[in-house]
């Protein structure tokens, strides 16, 4: 951590533990700290997508957070013990 005064939290992203500053969004953690690039595969055209605006406008940062799918992760703050999964598969029609 660059700034010693900043408190941190530890969360799990795709089974990997990561420690990031408190108060930031899940999307910022995945994009700016983990550099995972793609965060979800688009349900219609199946292309890789990633957060574009990071402020609640574009709906491209949808990931699974603590078991809940399609969460707009730029609007969710990181928490200790949080379990995040990227949505890299499109649910197929049955």
């Amino acid at each position: 951590m660059k700034n010693g005064l900043q408190p941190t939290v530890t969360l799990t992203v795709d089974d990997k533990e990561v420690t990031v500053p408190t108060g930031i969004s899940v999307a910022a953690a995945v994009l700016g700290h983990l550099h995972l690039g793609c965060t979800c595969v688009h349900p219609v055209d199946k292309t890789p997508r990633a957060p574009y605006c990071l402020m609640g406008v574009c709906f491209e940062c949808m990931m699974e957070v603590n078991g809940e799918e399609n969460v707009q992760t730029c609007l969710v703050s990181v928490e200790d013990g949080m379990v995040v999964k990227r949505q890299l598969k499109v649910p197929e029609a049955k």
Binding site: K2, N3, S25, A28, G32, H33, H35, L54, M55
Partner: peptide
Amino acid sequence: WTLPGVITAGGADILLRSGGTLT
């Protein structure tokens, strides 16, 4: 513009202010 790695300038600033980096 839908490719990962393309973001808005404001989005980039949020990443920086979250202690992250763009690359």
